[in-house]
């Protein structure tokens, strides 16, 4: 890691500690849920980042299919991987929150169900990507699925919402349904998760670039070896 990456890691650590302070000590307990509400700052923040990550995947998939520059494909896959991690975190924190509030680990709430379907869609995206040969074909095929999956998300959400809903509305058409200190903490947590997302995106894209470069060097080396072998066979004959 370079100097800038280390700076990023230290900034995330400091912001992370501040976020813990705001979420666990500074913000007030909720009227009915009490201290259990504190998990919301991590749950909602990570859910928003997960949706953002999948949007970035679809956006860079479109840009890749137009420009055909593999850098955009690397950004798309890095964002999808981070999105899957944040979605997993959302599902786990959601389940932990649901147990004491709804008295169940899992319920068929639209947002919960949509999030789990989203998780499966992008796990499928990563599996599809990981099992296709050829850099460009892989980028093209996974890019198309990234777009299809993202276009399907609103349809999935509305279908599941019409099916059933019991989720608390943190934000509705009247705005945020919570006091100012809680809104500040929630937005601060979101900002911290966003910085973590950006840092991971840069590091993962850089790693993917190095991986592709290594692959191309190895391929070039194999071609050189094959050529050297051909030359030696020709020389002998």
């Amino acid at each position: 890691m370079g100097k800038s990456s280390w700076f990023g890691v230290i900034a995330v650590a400091v912001l992370g500690f501040l976020c813990q302070y705001f979420a666990l000590i500074w913000s007030p307990p909720e009227k009915t849920m009490g201290n259990l509400v504190r998990i919301m700052y991590f749950h909602v923040g990570s859910a928003w980042i997960a949706f953002l990550a999948f949007f970035v995947t679809a956006l860079f998939a479109v840009i890749y299919l137009i420009r055909r520059n593999l850098l955009f494909d690397r950004i798309a896959v890095a964002s999808a991987e981070i999105g899957v991690v944040f979605t997993s975190f959302t599902l786990i924190t959601g389940s932990l929150w649901a147990k004491p509030i709804w008295n169940t680990w899992w319920t068929w709430d639209p947002r919960l169900t949509t999030t789990l379907i989203l998780w499966f869609l992008y796990v499928g995206y990563l599996l599809l990507r990981g099992t296709i040969e050829g850099l460009e074909r892989r980028a093209r095929i996974s890019g198309i699925f990234g777009i299809v999956a993202f276009a399907d998300v609103p349809v999935i959400h509305f279908a599941v919402e019409w099916w059933r809903s019991i989720h608390p509305q943190v934000i509705d058409e009247t705005g945020f349904n919570m006091p100012g200190t809680m809104i500040f903490t929630l937005m601060f947590a979101f900002a911290v998760f966003f910085v973590i997302y950006l840092l991971l995106l840069v590091l993962r894209t850089r790693q993917e670039t190095q991986k592709q470069r290594m692959f191309l060097i190895r391929q070039g080396l194999q071609e050189l070896r094959a050529k050297a072998f051909d030359d030696s066979v020709r020389g002998e004959s």
Binding site: I117, L118, F120, L121, G124, L127, L128, T131, I132, E133, R137, I141, F145, V148, A149, D152, V155, I156, F158, A159, V160
Partner: peptide, 19 residues
């Protein structure tokens, strides 16, 4: 073109067709 084609088609199809 995936080497996991047989398992991937249902795996991609089911979440996509939930609505």
């Amino acid at each position: 073109s995936s080497s996991l084609r047989d398992i991937l088609v249902p795996l991609l199809l089911f979440p996509t067709t939930i609505p």
